[in-house]
Structures are given as C-alpha cells and as structure tokens.
C-alpha cells in the first residue's frame, strides 16, 4: 500500500464517479425528455423530437393548464390522499405484526405459514378482483357509508400483505435474538417487546416498505377503478389523468404534463423518508 496503491485508489474513484454519472444520465434522460415535451406545443410534440427544443425553444403552458385547471382536479387529489394514507398504514402495521409473530414466537407450523404467505405473492391481482368485489360489497353495505373508500383500503391492504410480510420478516428475523430473549426473561410480553424493542429497530425497513406501498397505491389505476369507480366522489388522480387523453387517445400530449403533476407527491414522500435510511440505526444489530 505505497504510492502505487494510492494512485490506483484515486483512479477507481474517478471511474466510479464516471460510472455513477453514466447510470444517472441513462436513467434520467428519458424522463427529462418528457419534462421538456410537457412544455412544448402539441404539434411540435407530435412532429419532432424534444431535443429540437434547444434549437428552437417554443414554450407553452397549455398542457399544464389543461391538466391543472381541469374541473375538479383538486377533488381527485383529495381522493388520492384519502385512499393512499390508510392503504399504506394498514399493511405496514399488519405486516410488521405478522412478521414479528412468524419470526419470534414459537408455535408449530410457523415456517409453513410463512412460506404459504410468501407464495401468495404470485396470485395475480386481476384474478383476485372479482371474488374480492363479491366479498367486500356486503361489507360496504353493512357499514352504511356512501363512499366505497373503505373497500379500497381493504383491497390495497390485502394485495400488499404478502410482500410486506416477506420484506419485514427478513429484517425482523435478523434482529439479535439475545435482546429479545433478555426482554422475555425480564417478563415483558410480546406486545410490549414488539412496541418498545422491535418497532424502533426496524424503522428503516418500515420506511422503505412504506415508500413502495405508497408509490404502488398512488400510481395504481386498476384497484382504484374497480373498487372506487371513476366518479369525482371517490376516484383517485390516476383515473382522472388517464381519462384526459380523450375518448380515442387524441389528447395524449396532456399526459406529459399529467405525469409530472402526479410525480410531485411521491417525490416529496421519498425525499422526506430518506432521513430514516441513516447509517448506524441497525448497526450492532447484525449478527456476527
């Protein structure tokens, strides 16, 4: 590890930055193209490439005006929030509980239950829609609530559980056993260990599952369409944006702006949850 070693290290770090930049450019360029397109006039979008914008910048807010000032957009926005928040909270909590039970309580058959839940991930959403509708319709009627939102929450929660339990089980089962054993010996109940020991330790895992569940629900079109319907009373933003393309897709250029209107919230969520991915939170908890 003389001067030669140091030179090599600097070289790899230079190539490292280069590789990172190449990946970042590759991954961002398509989206950047869409961003540029969303400010271009309809005819330009449809007849030449977005890079021509730099040679001949024609800026229009028409696409954003169509999308933002469209009647009732705010209403759909609220629907999306009302749908998304519980649809993230429920599965995160239920998955964490189930994952804890599967990792740290002792009863016969728990491994098989875990494997079974894991396998349920493959049940295609589409095949589950009709039977779920049949089961949830009476639930909704029993609740005597005029909005079908509750069934949307339950539907999203059902579909998220297998992945959630699988992901969180992997984190929770990696926690150091002696901490939990010690608490048990001290006479703490499982409920208390779960609340006071486990939950604080798995915050990064909860945050990452929460982010993905948020994205999935926020961008979901299908579950929203089936369980909430397409009207302004309940339908999420995605349903409205998809409709804006017109009956025969003739207005698809509006979707360029639509994509950026709906991306704002997920990005805010991502950036604000980023701080939970802090180094050291799990440090010392990894075995070995």
């Amino acid at each position: 590890m003389s001067s030669e070693g140091r030179v090599r290290k600097r070289l790899t770090s230079r190539t490292a930055s280069l590789v990172a930049i190449v990946i970042a450019v590759l991954w961002t360029t398509p989206t950047f193209g869409l961003l540029i397109s969303s400010f271009r006039p309809e005819l330009e979008i449809k007849t030449n490439g977005w890079w021509n914008f730099f040679g001949d910048p024609q800026v229009t807010m028409a696409n954003y005006e169509e999308v933002l000032l469209n009647q009732g957009l705010l209403s759909y926005f609220i629907n999306s929030l009302v749908i998304t928040i519980p649809s993230v909270l429920f599965p995160v909590a239920f998955s964490a509980m189930a994952a804890y039970a599967l990792a740290w309580t002792r009863f016969r058959g728990r491994d098989w239950i875990f494997i079974g839940i894991f396998a349920l991930q493959i049940v295609p959403l589409q095949m589950a829609l009709i039977p779920m509708l049949q089961m949830l319709s009476p639930v909704q009627e029993a609740l005597i609530w005029p909005y079908p939102t509750a069934t949307v929450w339950l539907a999203h929660t059902c579909f998220a559980l297998p992945l959630g339990i699988f992901l969180l089980h992997n984190f929770i089962s990696e926690l150091p056993g002696d901490v939990i054993e010690a608490a048990r010996v001290d006479g703490a109940s499982h409920a208390r260990i779960f609340r006071q020991v486990v939950l604080p330790l798995i915050v990064p895992a909860l945050a990452s599952f929460g982010i993905f569940q948020f994205l999935w629900v926020w961008n979901d079109l299908l579950v929203g369409l089936v369980f909430a319907g397409g009207g302004p009373d309940n339908a999420p933003l995605t349903v409205r944006l998809a409709e804006m393309a017109g009956s025969r897709g003739q207005e698809w250029q509006r979707l360029t702006a639509g994509a950026f209107v709906s991306i704002v919230v997920p990005l805010i969520v991502f950036l604000s949850l980023q701080r939970y991915f802090v180094r050291g939170l799990l440090a010392g908890s990894v075995k070995g």
């Binding site: 989206t31 993905f212 961008n219 995605t238 639509g258 994509a259 709906s262 991306i263 997920p266 991502f270």
Partner: peptide, 8 residues
C-alpha cells in the same frame, strides 16, 4: 422512474 405511473 418508480414514482412515475405506468401511463407516464
């Protein structure tokens, strides 16, 4: 890209 809907 994960935050962009499939339509986008």
């Amino acid at each position: 890209p994960m935050a962009i809907s499939f339509v986008g």
